[in-house]
């Protein structure tokens, strides 16, 4: 077993109380590892804490507890100078390719900026490196003088990816990198991210609400619900034999591009979703874990774990 590239232990993010509202546990005791060259997919509905988790790992959001180790180095206690030097090992790619590129900068300027900040290549080699980056993401190096508005959404996302890769990172957080794109462009960007991973040995944390996209990208998958990971395993384990009722619920709800099957899915009795509404407590079984004590992590199979009070199925409430 190789040393993990990223090791997250009991990472928690607490948003302080505001206007009489109690503090919000946005991320609660997240623990996982990502091996070199591997992708962990992070799925869950909006507000489940996926984005906050990604930001906390990159130290863009202060964690209230827990540890994040990248390349063996603890990030949460680093001074800002040290952290700045670590930033060239960790980069991110965000959802919106329209707002994440400066409209008045040429593609060349956008891509040379990180090279200048991190001094990763000598000044006289910057131009060469920028052209190399454009080729890496399958863009024509002749586009170096163009501005972002001259590009399509997919091309812009390629530029965003090239910028993230400029400093030769080891780890990239991709937060909904393809959700704003059309289906064919999505597929192209997914293929690009996969080939870059193979070529450069990158590790990804791939955050998305689209379960099918995550299935294509991820080696391992973690399912988040209300700030916690409720299930984690290999993509095949989580998608083909989900152990947590919430995972099952998500998978059952994904519309499938097969008319016969999809009609049948819509005709099944609808699940009871009342636990999703209301005051942000209570799980699929209506149990308030905060009051009840968080259930422990059960190992379903090697590498596949679930956090649910009523696992295995048929115990607890279901059996009663």
């Amino acid at each position: 077993m190789t040393e993990p590239l990223l090791q997250v232990r009991d990472l928690s993010v607490l948003f302080p109380a505001r206007r009489g509202a109690p503090p919000v546990k946005a991320v609660e005791r997240l623990s996982f590892e990502i091996a070199p060259g591997q992708t962990l997919g992070l799925v869950g509905q909006s507000g489940s804490g996926k984005t906050t988790a990604g930001r906390a790992i990159l130290q863009l959001q202060k964690a209230s507890a827990g540890s994040v180790r990248l390349l063996g180095q603890e990030l949460t206690t680093m001074r800002s100078g040290e952290l700045r030097r670590m930033r060239r090992h960790m980069q991110f790619v965000l959802q919106n390719p329209y707002s994440s590129l400066h409209p008045r900068m040429t593609i060349g300027q956008i891509l040379s900026e990180p090279l200048q900040v991190h001094h990763t290549v000598p000044k006289n080699r910057i131009r060469e490196r920028v052209e190399e980056l454009l080729e890496l993401v399958n863009l024509d190096p002749a586009m170096i003088r163009r501005y972002p508005h001259e590009f399509s959404g997919g091309q812009r996302q390629r530029v965003v990816i090239a910028r993230a890769l400029a400093v030769n990172p080891d780890f990239v957080v991709c937060d909904e990198p393809v959700s704003a794109l059309d289906v064919r462009t999505q597929a192209q960007i997914v293929t690009l991210l996969q080939s870059l991973q193979e070529k450069l040995g990158l590790s990804y944390l791939f955050i998305a609400h689209d379960l099918a996209i995550v299935r294509e990208m991820a080696h391992r998958v973690a399912v988040m619900f209300r700030g916690r990971i409720v299930e984690m395993g290999s993509a095949a384990q989580v998608y083909d034999s989900p152990a947590h009722p919430y995972t099952q619920l998500l998978l059952d709800a994904v519309p499938v591009p097969d008319p016969v099957l999809q009609r049948e899915r819509l005709r099944r009795p609808p699940p009871d979703l009342r636990f999703l509404d209301g005051d942000h407590c209570g799980c699929v079984h209506g149990i308030d874990h905060a009051r009840d004590g968080t259930p422990e992590w059960h190992e379903v199979a090697p590498g596949h774990g679930v956090s649910c009070r009523y696992w295995p199925r048929g115990t607890g409430r279901d059996a009663a």
Partner: peptide, 11 residues
């Protein structure tokens, strides 16, 4: 179109 299961959904 990405698929949840079967062809194309393998890594």
């Amino acid at each position: 179109v990405p698929r949840l299961h079967g062809v194309g959904a393998a890594r």
